[in-house]
């Protein structure tokens, strides 16, 4: 019997479609962390991100037929779409919340307390500004910049053309530059795209 851990995602999905719980378990252990990060970047809350990932995986287990192997898509690309949609539904149901978790956590790579506090504030500020972006701009930024997907894959996940995605990405970044400059995270002479504004 082949070792499930050595199988490709697509082979595991074929097994999941035959109610193989072991195959499902391998996929969960392989990708929970990755998709948790993606979900967190969408919603900015640790608990919500965990719920989103859990719901997405349970959807996969309860309705495995939603995966269509004949389309030739990679499992991860397809599952990004599931998680993204789950996150959008979740956020629309929920009121926009303050960015709490980002304030509570910062990677401890700084030397002094002062540096850590500055890094903490900066990280929280970036999180707040990103969360305030229009939904589609935020998703485009997360998928391309943070998840490092290709524009083609990100466009496929979002169900838009590559040109439209590039436009969303450009507007997201220029909007971020302006807002971070306004909040003092970027220095006065750092405002490279001064004329940038937010667009829906």
């Amino acid at each position: 019997m082949p070792d499930l851990n050595d199988m490709t995602d697509e082979d595991l999905m074929a097994r999941v479609q035959n109610a193989d719980h072991g195959a499902f378990s391998v996929l969960v252990h392989r990708y929970t962390n990755l998709f948790y990060s993606a979900a967190y970047r969408m919603c900015g809350q640790q608990d919500d991100a965990e719920d989103i990932v859990q719901d997405a995986f349970l959807k996969l287990w309860n309705r495995p037929q939603i995966w269509d192997a004949s389309r030739g898509a990679k499992f991860t690309t397809w599952f990004y779409r599931v998680v993204t949609n789950q996150a959008i539904d979740f956020m629309r149901k929920k009121k926009p919340a303050a960015v709490g978790d980002a304030l509570d956590y910062v990677e401890d790579t700084r030397d002094t307390q002062q540096d850590m506090m500055e890094a903490d504030e900066k990280s929280a500020m970036i999180e707040t500004v990103i969360q305030a972006l229009p939904e589609r701009q935020k998703i485009a930024l997360n998928l391309c910049f943070y998840e490092e997907l290709t524009n083609k894959d990100a466009a496929q996940i979002m169900g838009v053309g590559v040109k439209a995605l590039e436009s969303l990405l450009m507007r997201a970044k220029s909007g971020l530059r302006e807002e971070l400059h306004r909040r003092g995270v970027l220095k006065q002479d750092d405002n490279g795209v001064g004329e940038a504004t937010y667009y829906g």
């Binding site: 962390n33 948790y36 991100a49 859990q54 990677e107 890094a119 900066k122 970036i126 971070l180 750092d190």
Partner: peptide, 26 residues
């Protein structure tokens, strides 16, 4: 430089039992 600043965005670690929780729930 701008990208470097954006990368400073931190993701808090998930709870260690999340995978187990998902498998149990299924």
């Amino acid at each position: 430089e701008f990208n470097k600043i954006l990368k400073a965005r931190a993701v808090p670690p998930m709870r260690s039992n999340l995978e187990h929780r998902i498998v149990q729930a299924s």
